[in-house]
Design a binder for these strands. Structure first.
Length: 286
DNA sequence: AACAACCCCAACCGCAACCGA
DNA sequence: GTCGGTTGCGGTTGGGGTTGT
């Protein structure tokens, strides 16, 4: 796949968008739709590359974008979804109406991640391996997530770690210093089934599908309801907004991880047909 | 008041998937 | 099946704003 030339073309403007440019872009898209992003700048009379126009539209100018601070519910959703999906910002943002992947990503990196790491330090989690092993036995999602935060650069290996849950060695006592080596030793040579789909199909995943009418009928759905009143450490301003003030919701956010533990990552058939095709489901060999 | 350090987020970069010819 | 163009996505960065000294 050849890379397409984009902003490196001479004569195209880069950097912050001017209000006039915004207006041109909005007017054009509202009148004609965006069509081909690549040809849009020329048609609209913008000295920008199509990529820049697309980003500006999807991340800033789109009329359905929600402005303002993240609410408590959005905060929780992001944390919960990130525990399942990892850095799949577009997938997480898809569950948050009006929020963009870029916004969610920035919010995670600048607020939530910081808070959770801060709390993690206070909880003295065991080694990465122990956490992975805990996840492998389904005993505590929080520890699994801790391990993931601790080593985000190794996200791609998570599925392999998770798949090791049926391996006897995964539940044995192994010194923390040897964790990485043991992880490597556990790695099977062949690709493993999609572990996200497995989790999504578990009680943990069900917690996020509770919004769907289908889910309401299922006993398997875990309801993570917001507290009736603002918990300690969380402020609700006088306007009634659920805005979370910096640093103040760390306990709440972290507790979410603890509450989030799945006692049993049992597999629930038929829970996510609205999300995945039947072919995908049948291919999972659940 | 001036400067440094830090924070935040819009925008960019580059890779990979997707899609049609 | 292959190729080239296009789009989507996640990681990273630059710079403006804020806070601390």
């Amino acid at each position: 796949m050849g890379r397409s030339p984009c902003c490196d073309k001479q004569g195209l403007k880069k950097g912050p968008w001017m209000p006039e440019e915004d207006k041109i872009l909005v007017d054009y898209i509202q009148a004609n739709g965006h069509g081909s992003w690549r040809s849009l700048p020329k048609l609209a009379g913008l000295l920008r590359c199509g990529k820049s126009c697309r980003l500006r539209w999807t991340n800033y100018l789109r009329p359905d974008i929600k402005r303002g601070p993240f609410t408590v519910e959005e905060d929780k959703s992001i944390i919960q979804l990130h525990a399942i999906l990892g850095n799949k910002w577009s997938a997480i943002a898809a569950q948050l109406p009006g929020r963009t992947d870029n916004e969610v990503k920035n919010y995670w990196n600048t607020h939530l991640k910081k808070r959770l790491l801060l709390r993690r330090d206070h909880h003295l989690f065991p080694s990465t391996y122990a956490a992975a092993a805990a996840a492998a036995t389904g005993s505590h999602m929080a520890q699994w997530e801790s391990a993931r935060l601790e080593a985000e650069a190794r996200l791609s290996r998570e599925s392999l770690l998770f798949c090791g849950r049926s391996t006897p060695a995964a539940t044995s006592s192994i010194p923390a210093d040897n964790a990485v080596e043991h992880e490597a030793a556990l790695l099977p040579p062949a690709p493993e089934p999609d572990f996200f789909l497995r989790i999504w199909n578990s009680d943990v995943g069900a917690a996020f599908r509770r919004r769907s009418p289908d889910c309401a009928e299922s006993k398997s759905c875990v309801t993570i309801a917001p507290p009736p009143t603002a918990p300690a450490g969380m402020d609700v301003d006088s306007s009634g907004s659920n805005e979370i003030l910096p640093e103040e919701s760390s306990d709440e956010a972290y507790q979410l991880y603890l509450d989030f533990a799945g006692d049993d990552l049992g597999l629930l058939h038929g829970q996510f047909s609205s999300l995945f095709s039947s072919d995908m489901i049948s291919d999972m060999h659940l």
